[in-house]
Design a protein around this nucleic acid. Structure first.
Lengths: 113, 113
DNA sequence: TTGACATATTCCTATATAGGAATATAATGT
DNA sequence: ACATTATATTCCTATATAGGAATATGTCAA
């Protein structure tokens, strides 16, 4: 007993977003609030699949739901992606700094020519 | 046949980094190049565990390996996190813009007081 | 060559998926 | 009440883990 597998997808934004399809859903909802069926049509998947992915996203707080009649309108909750942005940013500094240094070198070469 | 489970951890940076321990490894290596045993000591895990996580990270290109004597020195390859940074950035725009708008509102309230 | 050190690999198992199919729930209009 | 529309849930299964334990590989030094 007490065995362990992969971290559950509903554990945090990192795991929820690891699934490519869930990223697609978020990209779609970034532009505008959308009903499940609109997503189904836009993405071309079957409806249960869309609902299930939305379920995971909702559990993690990546999307929010608003009920209008029989529809459920989903919208992205961008702020819940903050942990990812903040985790990756320090690494971004590294490659952008490296790029800056390269820039400086190129500039120097230009002058010396 | 043709069943599917979760996207393999070695499929892309998103999946590799979904595992919290792998993020810890990357954080450690962000500061400086390190041998496996140094990581073992720093993180307090057993050696095979560290090696296995490094293996995944290496497959995805998130770390690079340099052999020196019987040691293997690992360093982070920050640029391979670019896809994550670029994917999440448009969402960051959303919440930072929202924050800006809030800022404007607060400024206005101050003036009107 | 032998031992000690550094790291990787293999074997095992419980677990959490993702996808497909079928079905359940919920809300609306008539 | 009933049919219809919109969405969620359940059941099933092959798959890829992550962790622990044990072992293999590789490299140096005497």
């Amino acid at each position: 007993m007490s065995d362990m597998a992969r971290t559950p997808t509903t554990h945090d934004p990192f795991n929820a977003v690891a699934e490519p399809k869930r990223r697609q859903v978020l990209e779609a909802l970034r532009e505008q609030e959308m009903s499940v069926n609109e997503l189904v049509e836009l993405l071309g998947w079957n409806q249960p699949s869309v609902s299930k992915h939305l379920g995971v996203l909702k559990q993690v707080g990546l999307v929010e739901e608003r009920r209008v009649g029989r529809q459920r309108l989903y919208r992205v909750n961008a702020e819940s992606l903050k942990p990812i942005f903040e985790w990756v940013s320090p690494f971004e500094k590294i490659w952008s700094e490296r790029f800056d240094r390269l820039d400086v070198v190129l500039e120097k070469m230009k002058k010396e020519k």
